[in-house]
Design a protein around this nucleic acid. Structure first.
Lengths: 129, 129, 129, 129
DNA sequence: GTGGTCTAGACCACC
DNA sequence: GTGGTCTAGACCACG
């Protein structure tokens, strides 16, 4: 469960946890049927309030990604992998759409927006390597 | 001052007003030295509370885009145009960066992200025409 | 009637006119019994709205500094000179008191405040010469 | 957070709160990293509307003095202390300059102004003790 | 509990 | 008419 959250990110902490776990499921970093860390364990690891982790887990349950195993904890649902893979790209697509809609209002041309995008993509890739 | 706001957009109304006006200044839709619509007038036009418009205007003042002319209204500051042009692309760039950073965490490859982007850009352009 | 007003000064324009005229009377720049410029003349000279000059004159009348001479205009009242001399220092004293009261709240010591004052006084004098 | 505001002071209440908190930070009465009183708490203490306090806090944020800790409150930014110390004397200096500039227009001599200043300073000190 | 936002309505000084 | 300020009360997301 290797990821970190950024408390000053604008995005709610619980929301970040939700997404990160969905991402992890999507890329098979946590396998279907596996138990995920307990609320208090993950809370300690991420240095956030246990309530916040609990809320994220609650949301993941209602999203059908996690299911409770009585007396043991929470495990990844069998149908979750495909679901998460689809949702991951869906989230990204939605975010892209929002940004582009905003960019359009700003009167930037499609070419200008494309250029900005390519530049940012390169800078992100450079950071990674 | 032709623009509209979306109350259910997630972005605060006053923030939308701020951006739209910066965009308008950037593309010279409102010229430097011109009076912008009064608080009450814009409030009526957008069907929002005058306080909300006032808050947006206040922020634009502290951003140096508007200056008050006592008893007359608010006018676009002389240095605002260049400032807003720069800020407009800066806002978009920042938003792109956020999305890309999120996309990267989701383990999508650069190619996949690029494809999504191109697809969304096309769909936006189609809507416009 | 040589003085200028600063529209971006925080102090209301009509108030600036009132004070400047009182100052002028106090230092005998306009003599008792003299007619002062008409509303529209002074308004043109200072490049402000005639209403604003009219308001200043109204206040000066109710302060007893100006009196109307039917068919001619406004002249400086006979008792005005002494009155204005007293009021001038009174205004300054009040302003000093406000600043000092604020400075006290900021926990600056009397010595520090004095130093600031002396420094500013010198810089003002230098500007003048 | 021991200070009071004067609603009939001419200076806006939210402005008074802003300055008082900057003063407090400058003199280390509230330490860097500490949480300041909540909006509602300070509003109750000062007997003003929570919105007014919220507005002051918002301004302090955009001034970089406070930062929000989500769901917890507002804390003093790490760079705030030095910033506030500088700004405190800067505010006082500016106010002194305004008064002196006004005094100069009134044709009072430097000596006269100095005398007024010393007198007021003494009277303020007497009040305090 | 926290801050953030919005609405509604009022009063003020200024031009 | 203009902006500026304040109050009152409501709703929201977050921890």
């Amino acid at each position: 469960m290797f990821f970190s959250i950024d408390p000053a990110n604008g995005v709610a902490i619980y929301e970040q946890i939700v997404r990160q776990i969905k991402f992890a499921v999507a890329r098979d970093a946590v396998k279907v049927g596996e138990l995920i860390p307990s609320v208090r364990e993950l809370a300690r690891e991420l240095a956030v309030n246990p309530n916040t982790v609990a809320r994220a887990y609650r949301q993941l349950q209602s999203d059908g990604v996690l299911i409770t195993v009585r007396g043991e904890g929470l495990e990844v649902a069998s149908a979750a992998r495909g679901h998460c893979r689809r949702e991951t790209t869906e989230i990204i697509r939605l975010r892209l759409r929002q940004v582009l809609s905003e960019a359009r209002q700003s009167q930037l041309t499609a070419t200008e927006i494309s250029k900005l995008f390519e530049a940012e993509l390169k800078s992100i890739e450079k950071q990674e390597s």
